[in-house]
Amino acid sequence: MNILDVKNVVKRYSNHTAVNDVSFSVPKGCIFGLLGPNGAGKTSLIRIITGITRADEGIVSLDGGELNHRHPSQIGYMPEERGLYKKMKVGEHLIYLARLKGLSLQEAKKELNYWLEKFDIQSWRKKRIEELSKGMQQKVQFISTVIHQPKLLILDEPFSGLDPINTNLMKEEIFELKTKGASIILSTHRMEQVEEICENVVLINQGKNVLDGPVKEVKEKFKEHKFRIKYQGTLPASLPHNITIVTRSDEEITIQVKDDKDSNIFLYTLIQQGVFIQSFEEILPSVNEIFIQVVEQSKTIA
């Protein structure tokens, strides 16, 4: 079951097409990476999903039903450019945003207490937003995004401007929300975080999705059948055919094979020759490499 289905979505502005026939699905309870270079149409797409704008063509369904005006209460959106009313007090601001999402005053107060306690920031309640540091404001912004317990969370660059401690805290919160049943769309440029956190990704470029699926599958698809072996001893002079040496040194050799099974043959040969194997690993491309490769490719096509 999918929390979100995006089908053939098109969004045109007067002089360009921001989103051009994009389709993907976000499975329930999944952390989903929405990737793409600057100006690829991510923000336009997010605005359609959050109901800020409407798609010219295509269908967006949330939890099985077509997107409608009741859905804002089920979505939590943290834009890349953070914004809060600077003059408002933390407590009243969070209650205000929670109530706009449809919570009653009592519910909003209850949730507010929960989150302030959780982050151990009860003392901020009466402080104005402008009195807080940037990192503190980020926390408030995050609470405002999740206070109404949305089914779908959309976080645009959630780690930007956070110190390592707060980055970790944010990650933990994301994982915790996931275990509580929320689905999370993460839009980011930080590929190492995508690698670490996301299970599924979609890659948007020039308004189109050029790649999507579970991270594992995507990596499989883009792997170059390379293996790295650390060893002690002397390598045999002749190696089985089908095997290309990419790099080699006295202790390490990287090979490329046509078929993954050929790596076994290579390993077998080494062992037979009495070479001591310290480690053997498959080299998978990082999301970062895939990202660059795909984006560059689509550039040359265009």
């Binding site: 005006h69 804002p72 979505i75 834009p79 914004g83 809060l84 945003l97 706009l100």
Partner: peptide, 16 residues
Amino acid sequence: EEKTNRIVEVMVSSVK
């Protein structure tokens, strides 16, 4: 002010 503050994007994801 709301626009340059960027609060508006948060707001319109909740209200019209």
